[in-house]
């Protein structure tokens, strides 16, 4: 289980915090849904110890993150920057990380092949020479096959074609362990209906609700007392309500549209 206790992340003393007082427990499969720039990736970096925690704590299986060192099998993440160690090809990097985490190279290679990254390609290219989508798929597969109890996936579907998205979703459904997946795309709510979902806006984490509930919910730009969930964007309060008159959240396609709504269309929903 990953537990966030009043977590605040900020770079530099004078800067505005990027993650603001996040409280959450992640012990199953979770979606973190938020627009670009809402702090999702920074939150993941903080959980991995790659971003500075200005206040609060992160516990992984009850152990403070600061006290975790040299512990394979605890956590893995799909940020491509952590999987470029040497000026060597992607295949060597895959071998290295599977060796250091006790993962299965053959299974990872099979999954990579499924996602369109052949063994031949991995031997020819360095990780940063792969296309953006291939880099994401490469680091996602390493994270998933690292035998970790907790896996953080930052926008794993970005630039994957629909067929490969489908294959990856199947794999995520079967994964035994805690999964945290962040995205700004709302179509995942329908694909992963039984996952717990948090919303993230302007550094604040809201929720959780089941993805299935959010799919059926509607968004209104008002503070509704009977709301399933309320959140604030650009100083305006929004409510997620069951059914009803508002805009279904899933119809926004990407949560980046929330800013457009907060600027102009909000009054219409």
């Amino acid at each position: 289980m990953i537990e966030l206790i009043n977590l605040q992340v900020k770079y530099g003393r004078r800067q505005e915090p990027i993650v603001k007082g996040a409280h959450a427990k992640f012990e199953n499969k979770h979606l973190i849904l938020g627009p670009n720039g809402s702090g999702k990736t920074t939150l993941f970096r903080a959980i991995t110890g790659l971003a500075p925690i200005s206040s609060g704590r992160i516990l992984i299986d009850g152990v403070d993150l600061d006290k975790i060192y040299s512990k394979p099998g605890v956590l893995a993440i799909n940020l491509s920057e952590v999987y470029s160690v040497f000026h060597l090809n992607a295949y060597d990097h895959l071998r290295l990380f599977m060796d250091l985490t006790g993962g299965e190279v053959d299974l990872a290679l099979k999954m990579l092949e499924d996602l369109g990254l052949s063994n031949d390609l991995l031997r020819k290219r360095k990780p940063w020479e792969l296309s953006a989508g291939q880099q994401k798929a490469f680091s996602t597969v390493i994270a998933l096959f690292s035998n970790a109890r907790h896996v953080l996936l930052d926008e794993p579907f970005e630039q994957l074609d629909p067929a490969r998205k489908g294959r990856l979703i199947e794999h995520l459904r079967e994964y035994k362990g805690v999964l945290l997946l962040n995205t700004h795309e709302t179509w995942l709510l329908s694909a992963l209906k039984d996952w717990n979902t948090h919303l993230m806006f302007e550094g604040k984490l809201y929720g959780s609700l089941h993805a299935g509930e959010i799919v059926k919910a509607s968004l209104v730009a008002r503070d509704k007392p009977d709301a399933m969930l309320k959140f604030t964007v650009s100083g305006k309060t929004y409510s997620l309500i069951k059914g009803g008159v508002g805009e279904p959240l899933s119809r926004l396609i990407t949560l980046d549209r929330i800013y457009e709504l907060s600027l102009g269309e909000a009054e219409n929903i």
């Binding site: 975790i68 956590l75 952590v82 160690v85």
Partner: peptide, 21 residues
Amino acid sequence: YSLFYASRAARYLTKFTRIGI
């Protein structure tokens, strides 16, 4: 140069893989 670049991955390596600091 290479030590500078490896220091980014090193944070992760030394925390969540078998290789300690």
